[in-house]
Design a protein around this nucleic acid. Structure first.
Lengths: 215, 215
DNA sequence: ACTTGTCCTGTCATGACGTCAGCTTACCGA
DNA sequence: TCGGTAAGCTGACGTCATGACAGGACAAGT
């Protein structure tokens, strides 16, 4: 399935090599959590992994290349977010629960991977196609389902004709991602974590169904 | 009012110095638009401004310091976003128009300053207080008014009691900012610019009033 | 022990960083 | 007109990260 892991100079990596490679990725991940992206240096990652910069360059072209690798793993994990919406109903009380669980799951995922995700966000915003694609891969899992839900309700006449399902779904997903990235900002607006979630769920429910939830 | 502009080593900057300083800021701004933040180097900015790196360091401690300066100017400009909501009504047709104009104004502002704003966003997400404060300064102008609008409707009983005005307003503002940053992402979801805006306005209207707009 | 291929690092040229002393320019009062 | 003074700029320098290479260390099979 996935082609063998290869070093930059074309050799196939063996067991030991793969371990070193992974260790470098882990250390890079940690560094991204603890220092600004701009200040993450190859030499620091290598030192932290107990190896030399030259070793780093054997496995990755540069910091960005390694970041893309991590992001790939996260994106694969993120595809599981689709389950949050698989076979869920948006009607009545069930709809309210669907919205709540979506918000919960999404925020958890984002929080767990916040460091790498904000780098992906930056790369995508800067127009880098590789980051852009990864961001899409993550968001699409949720966005597709959400678009489908809106379109379905629209077909049943329960949502206005002039609503664009993809636009609404995309905006909601983007909102969830951004709010997750800036949760701290809400505390200075006097909003606590616990209060934030139901209000987000409310917005999602309103956006998808056009109606207030029945709780 | 504003204390005199000073060089890093404490001298006050005269006319010529201020011009050089501003030129450096302008060139930095351009570079932020054309290359990834991580790759913006002092030496490139200086070259572009037709001066030497040493001159750059006379006015700014580092690239980040200069970015903060630009962001300050943008934040001052962004305070004007409050006008988009000053004295507006959220009732009936007027409410729909308010939502539309808010979306329009916000997206325009973000697009005009996208390069610097995504750096501010990154800094804030990374927990840097200086960037965080600037982001707040920009968003507060809109968020305050929006929170007020929701709270007012809530007082009149037209919005549910258990809605947290600040949480809803903050989420909507965050959504606008994020969507503006990732407008390109929507095209790959098959959503055109022109379609995006009314759907965003719909979400804003729904969030603020809890009802569909009358158009 | 010997070969083979993987894995790592010492070393080096290159180039960015950030500081400093010192040169040039502009302004101002005598 | 002529210094004097402060502003403005840069060349030069030590330090450090980058990225490439060749060669040494190591494990595994023969």
């Amino acid at each position: 399935m996935t082609g063998q892991v290869r070093t930059v100079d074309g050799r196939v990596a063996g067991r030991r090599g793969q371990a070193t490679r992974q260790k470098l990725l882990d250390c890079l991940s940690e560094m991204l959590s603890s220092s600004p992206y701009r200040d993450v240096k190859v030499i620091d990652v290598a030192r932290k992994a107990g190896t030399s910069p030259a070793t780093f360059y054997q496995y990755f072209p540069d910091v960005e290349g390694a970041v893309l690798e991590i992001a790939d793993q996260v994106a694969a994990d993120g595809a599981g977010l689709a389950e949050l919406l698989e076979g869920r109903s948006w009607a009545g009380r069930a709809g309210w629960q669907t919205a709540q669980e979506l918000v919960d799951g999404f925020l958890d995922f984002w929080k767990k991977n916040d460091a790498i995700l904000r780098v992906v966000d930056l790369g995508a915003a800067e127009g880098d196609k590789r980051f852009y694609k990864l961001r899409m891969k993550i968001l699409n899992s949720v966005n597709g389902s959400l678009t489908g839900a809106v379109a379905e309700l629209q077909a049943k006449g329960r949502v206005d004709k002039d609503v664009n399902p993809a636009a609404v779904a995309g905006s909601l997903v983007t909102m969830l991602a951004a709010v997750a990235s800036h949760q701290k900002g809400f505390t200075s607006w006097g909003v606590k974590q616990a209060e934030l979630k139901p209000n987000l769920a409310l917005l999602v429910h309103l956006g998808v169904t056009g109606r207030k939830p029945t709780r």
